[in-house]
Design a protein around this nucleic acid. Structure first.
Length: 193
DNA sequence: CCGGTGATGCCCT
DNA sequence: GGGCATCACCGGT
């Protein structure tokens, strides 16, 4: 059995990232409740040149420097939102990008949010997942999990043999570090190019 | 199936 | 002004 969520988010991102696999994320929206199981994560830390927190705290990245248990939401490529679960102690800029998840409840709402019908393409990437969960601005950035419209639960314990570590996706700096984690053979893991 | 590419706006230099 | 923790579409195979 893995640790409770409250203990996972206190850990450094690199340790928290594999433990967040199998956790449930729930979002309550006006249209209904959405629930997903995390299947792919990436760790980011202030000592890592690929991390938004690498060049110190700014207005945008301030949530990453808070104590674990908050959200960090950012906007990228002019059209996509992605979100992290902030981990570690206050004063250290780190967090875990949630890259993909498996739909559990609210599939119809997610399909509407994404504007598509194909369940295999709903939540298998960080921008797609944010869109499916109805995140269309950075308003949730800095909010405390379980005290906002997003809840994090411990969920399932994933067998160690079913966790794969690999290089992170879509970065230039430190691209060789195996700080991406995913559940082996899960069909909702993102496609790597 | 596969690789190439355009979209589009904010952040930080 | 450069670059980006991405995605969808297009054409060739």
């Amino acid at each position: 059995m893995k640790p409770e969520v409250a203990d996972i988010v206190r850990l450094p991102a690199l340790r928290a990232a594999p433990l967040l696999l199998g956790c449930y994320l729930t979002r309550v929206t006006p249209a209904g409740t959405i629930k997903v199981k995390v299947v792919e994560t990436e760790a980011y830390h202030q000592d890592d040149p690929a991390s938004h927190s690498f060049r110190g705290q700014t207005a945008r990245t301030a949530p990453m420097f808070q104590a674990g248990g908050r959200l960090y939401v950012y906007f990228t490529y002019g059209m996509h939102y992605c979100f992290n679960i902030v981990t570690g102690p206050k004063g250290v800029g780190e967090g875990v990008l949630i890259r993909a998840a498996e739909p559990v409840y609210g599939v119809e709402i997610m399909k509407t949010n994404r504007g598509i019908r194909d369940i295999n393409n709903l939540t298998n990437g960080p921008g797609k997942l944010a869109q499916a969960m109805g995140i269309k601005d950075t308003g949730l950035s800095g909010k405390i999990l379980n005290k906002s419209s997003i809840l994090l639960e411990r969920g399932e314990t994933v067998n160690k043999d079913d966790i794969v570590a690999s290089p992170r996706v879509g970065i230039r700096q430190a691209a060789d570090q195996p700080w991406r984690f995913y559940i082996k053979d899960n069909r909702f893991v993102s496609k790597v190019r």
